[in-house]
Design a binder for these strands. Sequence first.
DNA 1: GAAAGTTAGGAAAACGATTGCCTTCACCGT
DNA 2: ACGGTGAAGGCAATCGTTTTCCTAACTTTC
Lengths: 343, 343
Amino acid sequence: MGKTERHATIADVAALSGVSVGTASKALNDRGSLREETRMRVKEAARQLNFEINAGARSLHSGRTYTVGMITTDTIGRFSIPVLMGAEDALGAGQMSVFLCDGRDDPIREQYHVKTLLSRRVDGIIVTGRRTQARAPIGSALPVPVVYAFISSTDPDDCSVVPDEAGGAHKALDHLLAIGRTRIAHVTGPEHHHSAQVRAAAVGERLAEAGLTPAAPPLFGAWSEAWGRQAVGILLAGGTEFDAVFCGSDQIARGVAEALRAIGRRVPGDVALVGFDNWDVMTEGCQPSLTSVDMNLEGLGRAAAEMLLAAINGSPSPGRHARPCHLVVRESTSVPLVPSASA
Amino acid sequence: MGKTERHATIADVAALSGVSVGTASKALNDRGSLREETRMRVKEAARQLNFEINAGARSLHSGRTYTVGMITTDTIGRFSIPVLMGAEDALGAGQMSVFLCDGRDDPIREQYHVKTLLSRRVDGIIVTGRRTQARAPIGSALPVPVVYAFISSTDPDDCSVVPDEAGGAHKALDHLLAIGRTRIAHVTGPEHHHSAQVRAAAVGERLAEAGLTPAAPPLFGAWSEAWGRQAVGILLAGGTEFDAVFCGSDQIARGVAEALRAIGRRVPGDVALVGFDNWDVMTEGCQPSLTSVDMNLEGLGRAAAEMLLAAINGSPSPGRHARPCHLVVRESTSVPLVPSASA
DNA sequence: GAAAGTTAGGAAAACGATTGCCTTCACCGT
DNA sequence: ACGGTGAAGGCAATCGTTTTCCTAACTTTC
């Protein structure tokens, strides 16, 4: 692996090229007035010595570190990854590096991370997490801007970028209505879970607006395939008639799909199915492939990062910013309507 | 969000507590000889000013940044996350912060990241990636230690920490043999994929050692459920008799499980099934739940981080370090053997 | 050929913290 | 009264870079 050669300093470069440190600095940064020949000589020396500028020393002078912290409130998971990647992408374009901190749902650990980040003089902080529920701010009057992504802050003056989950649910419903479904059930996650609440409420709203009543009251359970399978049993046991199920997650939807297949109801022929999250593993693994609501988490992360950059440059965008979801239509809703029964 | 109060410096603290900067530094670091009263006064002033030490300035003096870089060669994914988390965990315990860099399979981008990290004077670098195949080193004679995790370096002198995939496959086979299966098929990923090759070779080995021949030659395909489903069709079409399938991934295994169920073969009664990766979403979603090989990626990440820390402290561990996989037994292999047919 | 203007590059003061050395002072024993 | 001893804390160099002056040497120009 090497572990050779110590880091060259600008003084080494200056010495090798026979100029003063100040001049070397100017040469490398294309600043000041120097002969072209000198500039090249210095640059060549730098190249030769493998000179990499000491960013820490530079920051000392400029006050900027071109570094941001990213804190996940809970563990890094399926939802934080795309957010994180989107942010990393947008920040990388702005030459910024990212400190990744995993909060592990532990407030002490989180505060420790905040302190560390401040100590490292990050230019800003992005906070993200597994669920969209608002959370207490990570600190008050912090010396750097903070943007909450996916998750949001309870302080309305904080900048939060969140998916418009209700809007996403509306789109799912509109789609189901458009393909002629009228007996629509909703199977989702735990009742206390913010996303489950929001989406269920949105479903109720849209159905009411369409002059319909739900096929059944929303079924709250777990975010799992097992619950999806179980929920079908509950619907059947209750004698509910339904020609569509909108699920709070793709995993639930997949469970529903399997249970329906097991009892011989065809998807989408008899029952149209829509999931939420647009998680490829589920939408593709599901038979038939699953129509789903996409929260565009990567775009959300990118947007959050861009807002952070703007805030760092003096133009904060306080408040809660909801970003639209979109529907990705696949086989599970591909049939407009089937009269009765056909192969 | 605040964006208030500029950062206090040690000079502010010194001024507020009426001592010199040097003394303030000693007080805060419990160094030098100071009256207890003075020490407390300084610490109180620091608290009052929300003083957070400027880590960059400190590093300037100490030469250590307590920072490491983590580069994913490809995109951050299902395999890099646990590695990353394990590493973050181990490094956090050593007070180190992690720079996350996403290589996106782009060598240029990767080299840019290496440069940036060196410029930020990281104490070390961890390289990881989606696949276990060896890759070219990220640089030669770098001034800091590098550890490859999951992925490995083609340079045998580099330190690489990898899962013992062959060993994992052996464990899967041993388990299947132990529950009395003798007609074992292997369905796995693309033939050119390193993991697929290694695991398939290991299967062949173990079967030979047991004096058995494979139920069929290894079936190479994609890392998907669809391929798993399709593979069952191929086995049947070929007239292959088999009482167990060992799959190269949990996704493939799940596809196999579904296809078997569709044609009425019971798992594990008629066919025992073992996956690879121990990915909860698949092992739990699968019916029945799936026995799988766990590469313990988080532990691997932790181990890599510990080796990096050791290397930073002057005790490198060059070479390739294979870490054992272990088998997690679930329902898909829970029945020792079923004579013929029963509910 | 001298005054003025340009140019190239050097010297040194930051930036924020650490640390080795030095000074000051109090206290001690003789 | 005086030197010795320790403790407390100040001073200044240092880390690597940037940037603001400043100086010396050329060019112009009349």
